[in-house]
Nucleic acid binder design. Sequence first.
DNA 1: CTGAAAGCGCTAACAA
DNA 2: TTGTTAGCGCTTTCAG
Lengths: 337, 337
Amino acid sequence: MTIKDIARQCGVSVSTVSRVLNDRPDVSPENRRKVLSAIQRSNYIPNNTARDLVKTKSDAIGLVVRGVSNPFYTDIIRVIEEQVTARGYTLVMQQIGTCDDEVKRGAMMEREKRLRGLILLGGRSDYTPQELAPLNIPYVCCSYDNQYGTLPPDSYASVSIADEEEACRAVTELYRCGHRRIAALVSGTEDRSISQLRYQGYVRALAAHGLPLEQELVIEAGSFDIRQSYLAMQRRLLAGAQFTALFAISDNMAIGAMRALREAGRRIPEDCSVIAIDGLTVSDYINPTLTTLCQPMEHMGRRSVEILLDMVEHRGGPIRETAHTTLRTGESVRDIS
Amino acid sequence: MTIKDIARQCGVSVSTVSRVLNDRPDVSPENRRKVLSAIQRSNYIPNNTARDLVKTKSDAIGLVVRGVSNPFYTDIIRVIEEQVTARGYTLVMQQIGTCDDEVKRGAMMEREKRLRGLILLGGRSDYTPQELAPLNIPYVCCSYDNQYGTLPPDSYASVSIADEEEACRAVTELYRCGHRRIAALVSGTEDRSISQLRYQGYVRALAAHGLPLEQELVIEAGSFDIRQSYLAMQRRLLAGAQFTALFAISDNMAIGAMRALREAGRRIPEDCSVIAIDGLTVSDYINPTLTTLCQPMEHMGRRSVEILLDMVEHRGGPIRETAHTTLRTGESVRDIS
DNA sequence: CTGAAAGCGCTAACAA
DNA sequence: TTGTTAGCGCTTTCAG
């Protein structure tokens, strides 16, 4: 079933059919009606491939997700998919491991799939202009920024929270509750990702409140994985680390650590308070419910798509947007002041 | 940069270039070398759109995910994406709400994106041949079967666990531990989805052990949502339901219910044991860790892709495969016998 | 308002 | 082993 068949059925030319297909005004009402009903009747759907070919562009938006197992992304992906589809584009998603290069992958997709735009969900925060050069299409960094890189600030688009600041806020919240020995659970302290940023927020908060930075209280899991977090915390507890509160850079990691704390006989929040950043749905149901700074995932996903399509459709340039978190108070933090 | 440019550069015809592009044997070593180096040099990448058009088929595999927020799917999606990409195809994913029609959506995608095959992740279990008729490409049902439908058993492919049987096994496990008043938390008892299947496993187990089926102990959340599960359980507890154990049809729902139990002052597992089906990663870290029948998600995702591509590449027909769960013993079930 | 015809970039006969 | 050429299904001038 092609445009030709429809044309024949209606006794008009393919151009006329094409016109009604593309909602052009220059078609007589009568012909439009005829064509429309023929399309309906024969269940015809235009061949996108042919369309893309002649228009020398596709309707594909790429999504490269880094660090797949991260449940934080699930909701954002949903929103992105929804928005992209709603705006008439097609989402092509690829997931990559934490060690892969999202830019290289994005550039490959750009050419192979003739992408119109690219969303990078999670990634490194230290791009150089050279690294990004292979990307010839608009892109937006979702949920991270380029804090450590050398991209000119107005040359790229991003939607993220102020990681350092929010981490500082989380730690300050613990401080406000009287905690003075506050541990931090991070992926890495110098991995050039949000882990480092949030770690620095922790460092800044300690400094701001006149607390010493102790290596004993910095726990590196080496990844954002729940199991690695569990194991790292277990090791550190075995080593006898003493603290009354824990700041975890992500909900998922907090959940892993909480099991280790529990197993070591440390009650939460009686013996140890826990606060995190992300705001996973499940965090509000675990025992105890987790106090966390919720990222506005819905908003972030939507804005990423909006900003990207604005660029794709030449309605706007690269915008860097900072979203704000909301404190969701759970049962995991105790005021000991 | 097109195939023509390359041809001109090398002083050969487009067909020759096309031949080396497609790794055909009938090209002289010299020409092949020339073309290859020209391609390299000019950083040329073939236009997939044009390829797809002439071959009247694409390299796209569709994935329709129903019930987006279900964390159970996250891992499977990852595996599916990995496998599909590894085999040289492109994954096009669309998520739909629980009320949307996955077949209709799949059929649309088939035509718009010229899909080669389709994976349906989650869906109804009561398709009729008429409903599936719009689908003219191979498809496989992942994580569910067509128990309630009228599709000829050898006409469709699926990879799933034996939901009813596994549910029966879960409930029997509770029975074995001495429980006699066992509640069930389901989405719906007659929703023609895995919820109904697992509910029937519950019913069968009760019958097998001579226990009465009591309406008071059947809790319908109306969805697979964690919050709805929490609220449903809360309502039922308020109504004064008495039971010593709970069988939840999914981990996610169990987690929601556990909070309600906790808040009602019922300790797990001392006052109420909980068992579920799915085996989410997070379930092994919550407090108490959840006893659950783990679905082999990795395996199921991989097999779905394998079976689908076997059909797409005409290497095999529709296969229905049943995977088996593994009991992961957590702390949520207590032996009271 | 309508139709004929020229491509979009590529593949695959078919001929040479 | 090569090149020529006819499409794949659609959009878009350009005439009428």
